[in-house]
Design a protein around this nucleic acid. Sequence first.
DNA 1: TTCACCAAAAAAAACGATTGAAACAAGATT
DNA 2: AATCTTGTTTCAATCGTTTTTTTTGGTGAA
Lengths: 327, 327
Amino acid sequence: MSITLKDIASDAGVGMSTVSYVLTGSGVNKVGKETRKRILASAEKLGYLPNIGARGLSCGRTFMIGVLLEEQEFASSFYPDILQGLEHVLNQRNYGLLLASYSSAEELKAKCFYLLQRRVDGVAAFPGAWLDDLSPMQPLLEKQIPMVTMTRSFPGIPSIGIEPFVIGETAARYLVELGHRNIAYAGPESSPRRTGILSVLGKETCPTFGKLASYDFELGITLFDWIRSLAERPTAVVVESDIAAVALIRTACASGWKLPRDLSVVGIDGLDFGKISLPALTSVGQPTFERGEKTAELLFELIDGRKVDNFFFQPRMIVRESCCSLE
Amino acid sequence: MSITLKDIASDAGVGMSTVSYVLTGSGVNKVGKETRKRILASAEKLGYLPNIGARGLSCGRTFMIGVLLEEQEFASSFYPDILQGLEHVLNQRNYGLLLASYSSAEELKAKCFYLLQRRVDGVAAFPGAWLDDLSPMQPLLEKQIPMVTMTRSFPGIPSIGIEPFVIGETAARYLVELGHRNIAYAGPESSPRRTGILSVLGKETCPTFGKLASYDFELGITLFDWIRSLAERPTAVVVESDIAAVALIRTACASGWKLPRDLSVVGIDGLDFGKISLPALTSVGQPTFERGEKTAELLFELIDGRKVDNFFFQPRMIVRESCCSLE
DNA sequence: TTCACCAAAAAAAACGATTGAAACAAGATT
DNA sequence: AATCTTGTTTCAATCGTTTTTTTTGGTGAA
C-alpha cells in the first residue's frame, strides 16, 4: 500500500530502528552522518509519510484531541473562529482535531464514549447552555482525560473565557458613561453578568428577562414585548447574546421604534455578525481565535502532566451604533 | 492503562482471538454459545472499549474521514449545518471526522499531506472560491483517496450541490412572476447562475457586478454604489451570497431607500441568517444538513469501491420580505 | 481400530511504528 | 593481552487489534 519504515530500511540497506531514529530525530547523536544522509535520501526518494496511527499505538498517544460542541451553538457562528485558533496551535505540534457534536445529554454521553474509543489525548468541551452539570461527561472524567471547557466553567475543570461578572461591569460602565441609569438585562436571573451590571449601577435589582430559551431569531419578538411591557421603560438593555440582540433590534425597528434613540442595545460576544444590523450592534467582545489558541495551549500543559488554572481574557467594548448618549 | 482484549480473554479464560470474534461479530457462528455468553459478560464487567486506532492498523482503515474547508467560508455560517449532516451519517458507521482548514493554496497542500499522514479513508473537500484548480490537492488525488467536493465541482471528482444554472433559473422565474424584467446580477460574469437568469429573461445580457472579492459585510457599500451607478436602474437584483445580499439591504436602507419598494433583493443559500435582516431576505435555498448526509453516503460508496456520479439537489425559493410585486 | 471430518478454541502472524537492550567493531586503558 | 570505552547499528519486544493457520477433542464411517 504505502511506503513504510521497512521499505526505507531495505532501500537504504539498514535496520528499521535506525530509520526510525533518524526520521523522528529521537536518536539525535546515535546515528552516523553517512547513514543518516542515506536514510534521509531514501525517505525523500520514496516519498515516505509516517503513519501517525501506528506511531500512536506504539507510544501510547493518538495525537488527536476531541472537540465537543453543542449543535445549536455551533451553528451560531463564533465557533468557527475558536476552532481555527485551536487547530492552529494543534497543528504546530502535529496534533489533529476530531469533531464531536451533540444536541442532548444522551448524545453527549455517547460522544464521550466515542472519544474514548478513539483514545483522544485531550478534550476541548463547549458545554451547551442548557447543560446543568457535567454528569453526561462522567466517562471522560473517570478516565481522567485532560479536558478544558469553554464558554462556561465547572468546578474542578480548567476553563477559558471571560469572567461573566466583568462582562456585566464592562457593559454597564459603558452605558452609565452615556448617561443611562435605567438598564434592563435579558439573561438568567442568577447570572454573574447581571450582578456585574447591578454593582456598577449600585442597585439591588433591575428589570430582568430570564427565559431566553433558545438563541433563535424569533426571540426578538419575545424580547420586544417584554421591553414594552415594563412599567418604567428602560433606556438601555444588555442582551445575553449577539443574535438575540440583533433580533431585538430588528423587531423594534419593524415596529416603528427609532433605535438607538428609543432604546440602546448592547450585545455580548462581539461577533462580526452584528455589523449587518441597522443600527449596527454595539457589543462586549471576546477574543475568539485567541481563545482557541489558549485552549490548545492549556490542553498541552495538561497532557504534559502539569496543573493549570482557569484562564480569563479581558473583555472589550466593540462600539458600533446601537447605543446613544442621553446627554 | 485501559482494558484490552487480552484482559477480557484472561478474565473469561479464553484466547483473545475468540474474544475478537465475539466482540466484532465477525465469527458469527464460529464460537460456542456458552463461551460467547461468558465473553460478553466479561467485556461488560470490565467496561471494555475497543481501541479504534489499533483496529485500524490491523485492518488497514482508520475509520476517519477528513474535511477540508476554507477558513473564510467556514466562518460564514452555513458550514456547521453541513458538517453536522456529515457527522450524523459518519457516526452511524462509527466513522470519525477530522477537521482541516486552510486559507491559502500552500496551506491546503500542507493539510493534504497532513490527512495522508493520518491515513484518512476519505475526504470531503470544500474548495475555496478563490481556488483555480485542484492542483494543491494533488497529493490526495495521486494516492486516489476517495474524495467528494462540495460547493464547487471539478472534472473527475464527484461533487454535491445544486446546478448553478438551475439556481439562476429559480431566482429569475420567481422575480419574473412578480413582474420584474430589469434584473441585475451580482456575481461572476462567467457563472452559470447568470446564464440561468438570462435564459429565463430571454436576454443576451444583464447588469453584472463580478468583483465580489470577499464575502464581507463591507461589500454592501460597494454593491449599493454599483446599483446606484447603473444608467437604467434595475428593479431587482440577485446576489451571489446571503451575506452580501443582507449587507446590500442594510446599506440601501441606511441610505434612505425603502426596500423592497425601491429594489427587490434575492440572495443565494437560504441561510437562517437572512431572517434578521429588515426586510428579511428572500433567498434561493439549498438543503444543508441533507447535503452533509449525502456527502457521507457518497464517500462510503467510494470507499466501498463503487463509482459515483455528481449529485444535485433541487433548489427552492425561501420567500421572505425582500422582494415586491410590480403589479 | 483407524481415518477423515467437523466444530470450537487457541496460537501465531500480520499491521507500522517506537524503544530499551544487545551486538559489534575499533581504539584507549590497564 | 585482557578489559573498557565509545560510537554505530541491529534485534526483539511492545502497543491492541484482526485474521489466517494450527491445534484440539469428539463424531461417525470404513
